[in-house]
Nucleic acid binder design. Structure first.
Lengths: 143, 143
DNA sequence: TGTATTTGTATCAAAGATTGTTACAGACAA
DNA sequence: TTGTCTGTAACAATCTTTGATACAAATACA
């Protein structure tokens, strides 16, 4: 499988939209910058749209723009819009419940998973799309 | 693909080994607790062994035990032994280098990836296998 | 109203990852 | 020498992700 790069693509897309403030951007245009197919872009835009991060319009002269200002969009908003937010998975079949250690470890791992996922979310929440714009030198639009 | 649960299995395995301090534990025994095939266990043990976290012996009465005390094994040691340590992937094809935004975003994402991965490692480094033993009620062996 | 454009989604193929299995050589204890 | 156990190769099954084609629905404009 290809490793999951939806968060990377989503941040890329959101940054492109931020630099085109107020304009409708077409999925073909975004696909050109991200270097992928327009449908892949539209799939991610669909998730971002359900998370109320972008607004799309169908039809001629349609396209997508940000739903709010770059400074009001945190990176964890984007992360949770396109990812299940799990850094590692629990064993899908579960531990042998007849083994006392297995049972207990399973519970510990479940708590640990939540803590790690929360940590990642908190770290990402320290940055907004506005910060990303500043990093790439679009300080004006970040305001 | 099945989601990657190697870290979960590795912690489970290491905890089992810790509760059998000083004894050789067979992969079949570990497989019984983790609820999977013995070869899957041996594959993970192989990675843990290369990271000097466990020591295995072949032959009759062979098996595996911890290479050091539970309190001297941090969870990030285990994490890095069995995982590439990347919470999210960069876009494998890379951005379109003709697009200035794409080029810049790529660099920002690369730095962000490193920061997030470092954050996860630091969080995991706050716990040792000894802490896990305490959580499941094996306080004695954690010493 | 009619046409061109664009999204949203279904569907399918291709590539890759993970897990589960079987098989077997090599190491080791008795 | 025999039996046991690890280490690893090889393969199938399953699932994910990405990429690609197709088309209905929505929309702007003439």
């Amino acid at each position: 499988m290809a490793a999951n790069s939806q968060f990377s693509m989503a941040v890329h897309i959101m940054t492109m939209l931020a630099t085109a403030e107020g304009e409708n951007v077409k999925s073909e245009c975004l696909a050109g910058s991200v270097n992928t197919n327009a449908v892949v872009i539209r799939r991610i835009l669909s998730q971002l749209s359900h998370a109320d991060l972008v607004v799309s319009q169908t039809g001629a002269f349609g396209g997508t723009q940000l739903a709010r200002r770059p400074k009001e969009i945190r990176l964890d908003d984007i992360y949770h819009a396109v990812s299940c937010g799990e850094v590692f998975a629990l064993h899908p079949k579960g531990a042998n419940q007849d083994c006392p250690v297995g049972r207990s470890v399973e519970a510990v791992l479940c708590n640990l998973q939540k803590e790690i996922d929360r940590t990642v979310g908190e770290k990402l929440s320290q940055y907004t799309l506005g910060d990303v714009l500043e990093m790439i030198g679009y300080a004006r639009a970040a305001a």
